[in-house]
Design a protein around this nucleic acid. Structure first.
Lengths: 121, 121, 121, 121
DNA sequence: GTGGTCTAGACCACG
DNA sequence: GTGGTCTAGACCACA
């Protein structure tokens, strides 16, 4: 379900967090559904439970998940996601577009990529 | 010329690297022109020369700059930039677009942002 | 009557306890009146009776309720409430006031909020 | 400098967080000044460095502190504190006032406590 | 069974 | 010397 890359310099907990976020964004884990438990994830990924927990805490901070003590963590609604996160993403979006254009990418090429993103209706 | 924000958790050398890269991308420092020297930067930003050095080395690795021993570092041509960087940016681009769409952003809204990016021809 | 928010990290039993306490404080359940039964609450909130039981026990410890075996739990008089609770609240009150003042709130603003609290005479 | 109470059910990291926040609010650590380092605190309080770090991370989240990697953590300005925190405090303030009034406290008594809070000019 | 907290101790990145 | 990350393993609170 999730892939880790130990060569990648990024912290494991960030990779787990991003992987889980991706599962939510792509609809693999629909809003309200339970995320895999800390214990299950730590066993299947062969990493320490503390590291998983940290990833889930980070996801909670962003608003992508919420935790019910004793029951587990669950995927939140898109509307629950921290407003600042969207601002942050738009800012990164602009920076990346600018750099890609500098490197010779065409505007149409980028817009095509946007059109081809799967819809999540 | 460059701004540092000690409050954002990112390492200083990354902030310097990103700042210099941005100066190149936006054309403030055209291809072939000299980057500000380590000494000047370390003085104006009030940080350790080692930190500046590291930022410039990172920029070299990406292909955004090259160093001529004894003369200084210079902005490279877009075509000299590491090919992997473009792949990496496109991959990040897709991920960000997907997340923004999930959060309710419209495709047209994003394409408009692309159209409005200043051209650097 | 009571609202649970599974998304706020607090334990369910605390939310139930606070909700019941609030009903007593605001006079919705006057002193001497019967609290909703464990069975009714567990059914209407769709949670485990043990969890309700625990909430009511906590309320008893504070002095906000007392239980008559075989008859149910009842709202107590304000004078029955544990004296330590008032000390605790005053201490929290001071800490919150201090922090609000630090954050720029005005003394008059806070005093106005006190004046506007509904009376329960 | 900080006091811990192991009998108190609250997690140690919350006690440390609250203690540090208090030092900032009361002006013992003025804005911009360095907080005691993780190692120093963990030694003087005889608790694990991880626990201290967690407290400081929580403080960062609230906006009361920021961290410069390799240099330390520093007290932030009141204006940097998360806006939601003030809302949260006002909401708690109202609830506490309401309960104190229910328990027989006088409005004037509470307002006097506000007047007597030390000023931090 | 679930997450929450804490300890002990290690290694790395940063400046 | 500073914080950042991770592991191993323990104990507790919650539902």
């Amino acid at each position: 379900m999730l892939k880790l890359d130990y060569r990648d310099g990024r912290p494991i907990y960030e990779q787990v967090r991003d992987g889980l976020r991706r599962l939510i964004i792509t609809g693999v884990i629909p809003a309200g559904d339970k995320l895999p438990s800390v214990r299950v994830l730590s066993a299947s990924l062969a990493i320490n439970p503390n590291t998983i927990q940290r990833a889930i805490e980070a996801l909670e901070q962003e608003g992508y998940a919420y935790t019910v003590p004793g029951k587990g963590s669950f995927a939140a609604l898109p509307t629950d996601v921290d407003a600042g996160r969207r601002e942050e993403l738009l800012s990164k979006f602009d920076a990346i577009v600018q750099e890609l254009l500098f490197l010779g990418a065409g505007r149409e090429e980028l817009m095509d990529r946007i059109r081809k993103e799967e819809r999540h209706d």
